[in-house]
Every structure is written in C-alpha cells, then in structure tokens.
Design a protein around this nucleic acid. Structure first.
Lengths: 332, 332
DNA sequence: CAAGACGAATTACATTTGTTACGAGGGATG
DNA sequence: CATCCCTCGTAACAAATGTAATTCGTCTTG
C-alpha cells in the first residue's frame, strides 16, 4: 500500500514536473482522475517528494553574509534575499497586530525556516549520529514544516528548555515531537515548566531524575538551533502571557534587551542579574558556549536582540532574514 | 542591469515559491505587474534559478538499477521511474511516426535528459578541470536543455564524432556549442563529416591538423556522454538520410544491431566488419574503453542495441528510461 | 528632430489549476 | 450484518496562471 502510493506519487510528479505534461494529461497517462493527480501532486510537494530550490547565490546577499560572518566570528552565515529595498510598507498596522503576522513577516518566517531546515537536514545526513538541541518559537516551528521527507532514525531531538503552559504549535514539546515524528528519530524534552514559580521550585524541578537525564543529553548535542526574542510588548513571551508588563519593565531596568530560551541578556549578550533569570529552566549559556549553536532570526524587529546575542559568543552560525541582515549592517 | 535582473528574479521566485504568495501578491510586494512576475518566474525556471527535484528513491527503481549495474559491471546505473506498468498504449501509431515523438517518448527523453544533466552537472562541479566528450542525438539534446544555470568556465566540451550535414538541434556541433555557451566553457568539435564518402577520403580528413588536435583532446576526456541508436527504419540515422535502406540491409547482414556515434556493432557490442564502419569518423571503441563513458538510453525500442553496447565493456555508467530498464530485465 | 525599435504596462482572454460538494464503493469495527 | 469511516470518482465552480494584442514611453539611430 504504502509503497504503491509513493510510487504513484513519484510517477505523477515525474510526468508533471519533468515530463511537462499538465494535470489532465498526467491523469490520462496514469489512468487516474485529474482531481486525484492534483491531490497527488499537492501531497508530493507537502511530503517533500518533490522539492523546489531557489538559487541563493544570485540573490546578492553573499557580501552581507560574509560581512556578518566575519564581524561576529561565525562559522557560517546565510541570509534570505532582501525584499524590502529599505522601505517598509504599513509598519504601523503590522506592529500592533496581536493575532497573526503581517504578510511580510510570514514570508520572512517561512524563508528562514526553510534555510534552517536545509541546514538541519544536512546535519542529519552526515554519518555520525546526531543529537539536536532545540529552542522554541515560530521560526523554529516553520523549520519543522520544511522537514518533511527526511529520514533520520538515529537522530535525537531534545528541547533546550522547559515547556510552555499554552500548547501552541511552537511549544518546545510540539517542536521536538514533530521533528521526531517526521524523521523517525527520538524526541526528548524537559518535563517541567519553562519558568518556575520560585527559585526554590526550580531547584526541586531540576533535581528530578528525568530532568537531569534530559539535561545531560542536551549537553551532548551535536547541533543546537535556537532563536531569539526581543523584549517588547509584542514579544512572543509577553503575548503568551509568560511575562507581565511589570516583568518587562523590571527586565528593562536590569538592562535586558532580549532573551533566548527564556534566558534574558543585556546588550553585550550577558545574562542579566534578575529574579526571572534565576527561575528559568533551560540549558545555560555556559553550556551552549561549548556546543555548536545556530541562531535563526526571522524578523527585522529582532536585530538589536540578535546583535546582542551574537556578541555573547555562544553562537557559531547565523541564519537570518535578508532585511534583518541589512538592518544589522546599518547599525555599524 | 544584469545583476539587478537576476536579483529581481530571485526575489520573485523566493516570494512565490518559498513565501507562498501568488503571482498577484508577489507583484504587489515588488511593485511590478502580475504579467512581469509571471515572466520572471517562467524565466527563473528556464534559467535554472529555481529547480524542481523529484525524489528518485521512492520510485521503486532501485532494485532494477542495482541489478543492471551488476549485470553489466557498471560503476553506477540510474533509471527514471517506470510509467507504463508493462502495457504499451497505441504502439502502432507511435512507431511509424516520422515527424515527431509520441507523448510517451517525449517524456522519456526529457526524463533521461534530466538525469544526464544532473550527472554532468555533478561532474563539472568537481574541483578538477573537466573535459567532456559528447555523442549526439535527441537524448543528449534534452540533456543540454537541462543544463541552464551551470557555470563551468574551465570545462571543455568536445564532440566524439564528425558532424551531420543537416543542422538539427541534436547535431554534435550544436550540442557542443550549446553546452559551451550555457556553462561558459570551451567547445571543440570535429570539423569533418560524420561519415566520409570513401575510405580514402576518411584518411585525408583524419590527417588534417585540426582534426588530429581535436581527437587528441577527446582522448583526454574525463567524462563521455553517449547514446545509442537501434538499427531500424525508424532510426535517427536513417531518418536523417545518413543511411540508405540498402545500407541498413547490408549492415543487418553483417550482424549489426545498433550504433553509437556512427560505429556499428553486433549483438556482443563488437564493431562489425562493414564498409561503413571504415568510413565513420569518430573516437573508436578502443579509445572509449579507457575513458569514463556514460550511456544514456531514452526509449524502450533501444533495449537490444543498448544491451549489445553494454556487453562491449566500454560503458562505465548507465542512465536509462525506467520502462527500457524493465524491458532489459525481462530479456533475462 | 523624426522614425523606428525596444521593453514594459495594460488589458483582455483562454487555459489550467485548486477546491468544494456529493455520492458510490470498500474495508474495518462493533 | 449494520455501521462508520475513509478514499476515490464525478462534476461544477472559483481562482490562478499563461499568453497574446495593444498602447505607451524611452532610447537609439538616421
């Protein structure tokens, strides 16, 4: 069943994309309905049986990538094509949008997600067994959507942080779960809240055997993919209700400009001295520093936070939205 | 100009294919007309800026490929997905078709052409300078169509045989020319007719310095891509008027079952003893035997000739239409 | 400066594609 | 055995895409 179905899908895809037939002709050739062919083709794209690649070399971002790579001492830097040409359209309406993302942002997330997925795919394709540490957020979520059709039964995916209360698609647990399912690998996550209620609680939670075990795995990660959050009202942490407005203010007062995995850092990428940072449950910077960490940045609003995190020296590779990359270049 | 255009193309392609916008939205986003975006996208596909890949693993041809690889002692074998499921449709109408190809054949040529192009592309992507020897025919022509967007300024393309009189798109000269132009490499070809009028003429032609030089280059080829012709009324050689019906008969009488580059061979892949073989101007089998030769076979009608050529031992790699591959398996 | 050539925008139209609603099999499941 | 659930075929429609004809500006060229 399974094989027949895949084979049929490949045949349809081959006739359509390679053979240059249209869906009606393809259907006739295979003795199927046009509607069925249409669905087969859609599924083939969905499942990664056919994939579309755009040459990044011609996008003109190579100089920018190289400049960022050198400035922050990275192993590599990849940027998506810049699209805004410097002029933002209706940014006012975008910013306040609480429900979803503006169209421009959506494209950015998808694009960065794709590049991230390609990087991860390449990592999984190596011979050595892979252990992949993961942050959370919409960028990472987009990455998982592009990971269809990748098989990596020996891979382990592990969350670098505790879980959210709200069960969104970009929850650490969901991310790990999705990746494990799609690749056939194993998923691990920290079965504790993201931010403990008190410092004492955190100690109790950390002492759990399950948690210690998971953290030990995380420390052996061969690749970590994380994102960064800016510290504004529009921040995802704030929207998710993980932070109160008062929290935000006091974090600002402590010099924080952003967070990654719930660890708040200042303009130099150093964790700030703040109660919240003592309650967060996540793999700390000191551990990340020795791991292979790739940062994904999907929106120009995050340039300040991203620059700060890059300055911390824990990041080895950067995958960034083209417009964000240009903006980052502008701030000298 | 040039760069701007490419960049625009990449942006449009990125928004459309990665960002998931439709052409109207893409146009709006870039401040262009929908029609322009449509053309940009078409061009992007045409020029190889965006490429569509179909996973060959799932086509179910791997066992067949492996079997063929072993039987003929090849380095590799790639087959396109089989589509006919063993049952041919209107083969009668197809066979006599003098003008063009049946739809089924067209797909086969394109598919094999694509795989050939991928192989060639990979060869050109190596670090070492490449010298590529080329045969002729519609299969090879299709290959050149899929070579857009490949840059290989150090590559040399050389025809393994003389030229046709009729200036078709699959003429050796045209093939070499197209490839050189598309990749930015150099093209060489044998400036002599494919089949000399007499044996004496052949000697004269071969003695030309230009010709000797070209042949010397051909003998250093790092990769040769050739195809095979069956020896029937429908054969391209016959259609092109290179062979008379009488020629065909006498070749059959001499035991010939097919040709490659105008060299006629028997069921064991050995050149037959026939006047025509003494007049053909092409790199001989003894030279090819020491080169890295890849054979492309695009139609089930050619299985007998292909099998014979494979038996000769001059072929190192095979790229074949899926239905032809199955048919070849059937003849035990 | 006029004429013509070229590229691109506009428009309109034909084709292709995506999506939905509906009904007929065809296994699983109780 | 009835029923549910899923898949597929059918048909119709809406949306998107491809293409050609036309016009307009701009740049070249005589």
């Amino acid at each position: 069943m399974d094989e027949t179905d895949d084979t049929l899908m490949v045949k349809a895809a081959w006739l359509y994309h390679v053979g240059g037939l249209n869906q009606a002709e393809t259907a006739e050739r295979l003795g199927l309905t046009r509607a069925r062919v249409n669905r087969l083709l859609a599924d083939a794209l969905e499942e990664g049986v056919v994939s579309i690649t755009v040459d990044r070399q011609l996008a003109g971002m190579v100089p920018v990538e190289e400049a960022l790579r050198r400035r922050f001492g990275l192993d590599f830097c990849q940027a998506t094509p810049a699209l805004d040409l410097g002029l933002d359209r209706q940014p006012a309406t975008d910013k306040g949008d609480r429900a979803g993302l503006s169209p421009a942002q959506k494209v950015a997330f998808r694009a960065v997600g794709l590049l991230g997925a390609n990087h991860l795919r390449a990592h999984l394709a190596r011979d050595e067994p892979a252990t992949v540490g993961l942050g959370w957020g919409r960028t990472l979520e987009q990455m998982t959507l592009h990971m269809a059709g990748v098989s990596a039964p020996n891979a382990r995916f592990i969350s670098l942080m505790g879980s959210l209360t709200a069960n969104s698609a970009f929850n650490p647990f969901e991310l790990v779960h999705t990746l494990a399912k799609r690749t056939g690998g194993e998923g691990y996550f920290l079965p504790v809240p993201f931010i403990a209620d008190t410092v004492e609680d955190k100690q109790v939670l950390l002492s759990q055997r399950q948690v210690a075990k998971a953290l030990a795995i995380a420390e052996t990660a061969t690749l970590c993919m994380i994102s960064v959050g800016e510290l504004e009202e529009s921040a995802l942490l704030r929207r998710q209700g993980m932070l109160t407005a008062a929290d935000l203010d006091s974090l600002h007062a402590a010099g924080a400009v952003g967070d990654t995995n719930g660890i708040f850092f200042d303009a130099n990428g150093r964790p700030v001295d703040h109660p919240l940072n003592k309650r967060t449950i996540a793999v700390p910077f000191d551990v990340l520093r020795d791991l292979n960490v790739v940062l994904m940045v999907a929106s120009p609003e995050k340039t300040r936070a991203a620059a700060a995190l890059l300055a911390s020296g824990i990041v080895n590779g950067l995958i960034i939205d083209g417009d964000a990359a240009l903006k980052m270049m502008d701030r000298t």
